[in-house]
């Protein structure tokens, strides 16, 4: 049995896959058609490893998030099996990985823009490498509908608009406190009777 392993490096990310050719699918000797294991090293975080299903989940989420990011959309994406979650965190991105084993706490990795693009490029390489012939359970990069983009972007704007409105309201209300009230004003009853012009 031929065991093959290939490494895909991109600055802060290094993805190593191991497997063998799928002879029934007509793979050549140097092509991985059956994935047996994978390891992902992101600088500054623990080594990640798992089965094909886990890599599928990671690819689904990262590639969809990057695709949305290019369209200016920043929102949370969760993989089909709830294993991988990615959400925006300030100018960074929070990657949350749930283990399928019991008793293992979820792993949280904070990625900046450069690390996100490194990871995305790593996953892109594996998709397009001719030495890898694996059926990935991921979505194609297709245009979003206009409605979806507007809803996704306007939600962020709506939130910030509400926040600004609240600040303006509090600020203007507090300004009123500084306006002095005239406590010396006295109500004097007008006792003089009206006089007619003929008097």
């Amino acid at each position: 049995m031929i065991n093959l392993s290939y490494t895909f490096d991109q600055d802060s990310s290094s993805l190593k896959i191991a497997g063998m050719p799928d002879v029934s699918n007509g793979d050549s000797e140097d092509t991985i058609g059956i994935l047996s294991s994978w390891t992902l090293k992101i600088i500054g975080s623990p080594l990640l490893e798992g089965e094909k299903e886990h890599l599928d989940n990671l690819m689904q989420v990262i590639l969809l998030y990057s695709r949305a990011y290019v369209s200016g959309i920043r929102k949370t994406f969760i993989s089909d099996n709830n294993i991988v979650t990615i959400s925006p965190l300030g100018i960074c991105h929070k990657l949350l990985l749930n283990s399928t084993k019991d008793g293992v706490k979820p792993l949280e990795i904070i990625l900046d823009d450069s690390e996100l693009s490194d990871l995305t490029r790593c996953l892109d390489r594996i998709r397009f490498d001719p030495r890898v012939n694996i059926r990935w359970d991921i979505n194609q990069d297709k245009p979003f509908s206009k409605k979806y983009i507007l809803n996704s972007i306007s939600n962020q704007k709506k939130k910030s608009n509400f926040f600004y409105a609240l600040i303006i309201f509090l600020f203007s209300s507090s300004l009123f406190l500084f306006i002095p009230t005239n406590n010396k004003y006295e109500l004097i009853e007008n006792t003089t009777s009206p006089k007619s012009l003929t008097d």
């Binding site: 369209s71 823009d113 693009s117 490029r121 990069d141 245009p143 206009k146």
Partner: peptide, 26 residues
Amino acid sequence: RELLVILSLSCGEGGANRLKASLYYQ
């Protein structure tokens, strides 16, 4: 910064597909 991020995610074949998809609406 947005422009730089778009450029960084547009590298390579996968990146080109991503960029192209972002230029269209369904």
